[in-house]
Design a protein around this nucleic acid. Structure first.
Length: 446
DNA sequence: TCTGGGGTCCTAGGACCC
DNA sequence: TCTGGGGTCCTAGGACCC
């Protein structure tokens, strides 16, 4: 059993604050600066100092911006077509997402971080929490600087580091570290400095765990800063923000309620979906699309050595357009937990039959796999009639497909139901080379 | 014309059971 | 007019994150 975190203990037994033992460990939040842009810059130094943006999967919206692009007023998540003229005027460099490159660079950064702290939680592709034994505040700061410099030197990626007695305060500290170059990329709310002066400057919507809806609720009640949120009554927080919001409040007070999660929890679901370039009306076309998405989801599933026992297919029209809207989803339980692509493809198509309505212009569809189990253990069922040999045959077929695709790239072997033209994939127009994972795309030095 | 994709967690309400 | 209470499980929807 893992040890209790003080906050959890408090939730359970209502120990008075004064009796909490001193906190013995401290959190570092290491966050890569403008991560996707930084990855592009590692391999193309000419991008240094100029405005750069990276686009989402379909080249639809902006998902990463260099500081120069931020200064020009390009917002996170903004649809790129709105900024065409700004881009042309300022010579902003535009890239499609290159997730293979970013994933590999992320892995390198995490490897370096793991050398500094055995307790490492990879929180997202560009962020990690480190838990270190609390010590002299100045030593903590110099430790953080050492971490930052090492990551930069060994991977080329610049990072900012926030230090705090709770994850939420480490997040706030990180925000402050990024806000001004005078901090040199490191800021601590964990030392002897009184954090309240800083919390008064942080907008409540910028606190980790406070999104748009909760921000609105809080503002309605006059709570506008992190400092004000810190002191709302517990009972009020519980009622208006639910238990997760109450945890955030306690974390701002310096009581750690959100523990480290060091073992990556096994996936609970796998989703594959895309918006279409143009809207789609025919049922057959939707089936082609979801066949491809089912295939991709199954590939991810096998890579993670998992089976799924449940499949959901969904479709929707575009909420941004005028006209009749329709969205629906259909969930099916599979006869047995499996990673066998043809079963997913067939189920996804059946799902489309169930929810398709003619007369709508569909903009998006997808497939989700759920109820996962490890593929090393296959649970039997009274009701499936497939014999051992049939399951073994399916396994062999999938392994063969995976081997061919690994060797010859991407989707060399596909299922005919997903169509022979690649019209449902994404067509990244401005993708950089996969510098670190493809021999043909290695960077050249002249 | 063109607006991402992939996740997690919590809650309320209904079905069902004894 | 009378018409239990308490528990679990499942699902849909909403909120949050990067």
């Amino acid at each position: 059993m893992r040890p209790f975190i003080y906050g959890e203990l408090l939730f359970m037994s209502f120990i008075p604050l004064s009796e909490i033992p001193r906190i013995a460990s401290i959190f570092f939040l290491v966050d890569c600066n403008n991560f996707y842009v930084s990855c592009e810059r590692v391999f193309d130094p000419s991008l240094e100092g100029s405005p750069v943006v990276v686009l989402s999967n379909n080249d639809g919206c902006v998902v990463a911006r260099s500081n120069e692009a931020k200064a020009l007023g390009i917002p996170m998540g903004g649809p790129i077509f709105k900024y065409r003229s700004l881009i042309a005027r300022h010579g902003i460099r535009v890239f499609s997402s290159n997730y293979i490159l970013y994933g590999d660079m992320s892995h390198r950064v995490m490897e370096v971080l793991s050398l500094f702290a055995p307790d490492l939680e990879i929180y997202s592709i560009d962020e990690a929490f480190l838990s270190l034994p609390a010590g002299d505040p100045r030593e903590m700061m110099s430790k953080a600087r050492e971490i930052g410099e090492t990551v930069r030197r060994w991977t080329g990626i610049p990072v900012s580091i926030g230090i705090g007695p709770t994850k939420t305060l480490a997040k706030v500290a990180n925000k402050i570290a990024k806000s001004d170059e005078v901090y040199g990329g490191v800021f601590s709310l964990g030392g002897e400095a009184n954090p309240d002066a800083y919390l008064k400057e942080i907008k409540v919507g910028d606190v980790w765990g406070i999104g748009r809806q909760r921000e609105k609720t809080l503002k309605r009640h006059g709570v506008c800063t992190a400092y004000q949120l810190k002191w709302v009554p517990d009972e009020w927080a519980r009622r208006h923000l639910s238990v997760t919001g109450l945890r955030t409040v306690w974390e701002l007070r310096g009581i750690s309620c959100i523990p480290m999660e060091e073992v990556a929890s096994s996936k609970k679901g796998i989703v594959s979906s895309r918006s279409f370039e143009k809207w789609v009306e025919r049922k057959e076309d939707l089936k082609e699309a979801v066949s491809l998405y089912a295939t991709r989801a199954a590939n991810k599933l096998r890579k993670a050595h998992l089976y799924a026992a449940c499949l959901q297919v969904f479709l929707s029209t575009s909420p941004y357009r005028e006209g009749p809207q329709y969205a629906n989803a259909y969930t099916m339980h599979l006869p047995y937990p499996t990673d066998y692509t043809p079963l997913f493809v067939a189920s996804a198509c059946q799902g489309i039959d169930k929810i398709y309505k003619s007369g709508y212009q569909y903009k998006k569809a997808g497939v989700a796999l759920m109820e996962m189990s490890r593929s090393s253990v296959r649970q039997g069922s009274l009701f499936w009639s497939k014999g051992r040999e049939e399951l073994a045959r399916q396994d062999r077929l999938m392994r063969a497909v995976d081997v061919v695709n690994a060797r010859y790239g991407g989707e060399m072997l596909r299922f005919a139901s997903s169509g022979l033209t690649r019209k449902w994939g994404s067509f990244p127009s401005f993708r950089s080379p996969r510098y670190t994972t493809r021999w043909e795309e290695l960077p050249l030095v002249r």
